[in-house]
Computed example of a mutant assay.
Amino acid sequence: MTKKRLICVLLFIISAAISIYSYVLLAKQTQILEYIEESATKELFIEHFLLFIGFYLIFRLVKRKGIIIFTVSFISGTYLYMHQAATALIIVYIYVKALIWLGDILLLFIRKKYKEESNITRMLNSFVIGSLFYIISVCIMSALHIASIEVLRVYTLLLAAITIVLYLWLRIFKVIEIKPDSIFEEEFVKLRGKNYFCVGTAIMLSALLLQLGRINIALDYDSLRYGLRSLSVLIGNTGIYDKLGTVNDVYVYPKGLEILTLALNNEITFGFVLSFNYICAILMLFVYMR
């Protein structure tokens, strides 16, 4: 056994021991055993296991990249459709894509002199700049007392539509050109078929889908306590700076993330806001990949 494999085995044993110890403590001090016996929890475990097995077999057995992408996308799309989460995720994906493309347009002249080291860095920079532009524009509209939620939704829709059309026009005429990253192609070829890569990727994808599948079913405590607030406490009739009768406005008016998701926030579901959060989490994974 090699030294690297020995370290991995030891880490696995230590993690398993800590997990078992934590489970025993939870079983004694909480009602976790009762929750596990519920049918919804059992279905959750079964879904997670089936997703893991499916993704693992795909990455382990399939060799062609195109087939892998198609199969993973098909399974993910089917799962999200069954859990009524596909619509929210698709709409939010288009919205995030529009923010990234907006950043590409705003950085067009700067990138003639300075270029990022990779497409991931380029995408993240564009997302930050596009999001910053949107947040500043909402703040200005609120300062002018014209930023009701209806106006913001129309503004967001028009901004996204204009951005998409303009970006595609610039790509067609090759004003904006994005070259593929050969580094990630080489890394994928090296990692493809490796057992640890297959297991890790399968766990990551199945866990992500499991969370996405429940956004219209249940809310976790942290999201409800810290991240999800209704429009009644975020925006008034003319903008985010309206007096809403709160004790201290600085703790109440929407922050950056909440401004970005104002147009997605509605009284029916928090699925759109949570989908935006999950896409941001995926972008954070890209940061570590960079």
Rank of each mutant, 00 (worst) to 15 (best):
F184E: 10
L158Q: 01
V175H: 13
K113N: 07
T121Q: 15
W101V: 00
S126I: 14
A85K: 03
K113C: 00
F127A: 12
L124F: 09
E117N: 09
K194S: 11
K115F: 03
Y93I: 07
S148W: 09
S131I: 09
Y155G: 02
I162M: 11
K113R: 09
E116I: 01
E185I: 07
R192A: 08
L166S: 11
D104L: 13
C198K: 05
I176Y: 12
E177P: 04
V128L: 15
M204I: 08
D104C: 13
S126F: 02
R192F: 00
I105Y: 04
E187H: 06
S131G: 14
I90G: 10
N119L: 11
Y114R: 08
I110G: 01
S206I: 05
E117K: 10
L107Y: 07
V189Y: 04
I100R: 01
I136A: 11
F109G: 00
E177K: 14
F197Q: 02
Y114E: 07
Y134Q: 06
F197S: 01
E185M: 09
L168Q: 13
Y95P: 06
N195W: 01
I146H: 04
V165T: 04
L168V: 05
R122G: 07
Y196C: 04
Y155I: 12
K190W: 07
M204H: 14
S137C: 12
K113D: 06
V189G: 01
K115P: 06
I162S: 05
F197I: 00
D181R: 07
L168Y: 15
E116C: 07
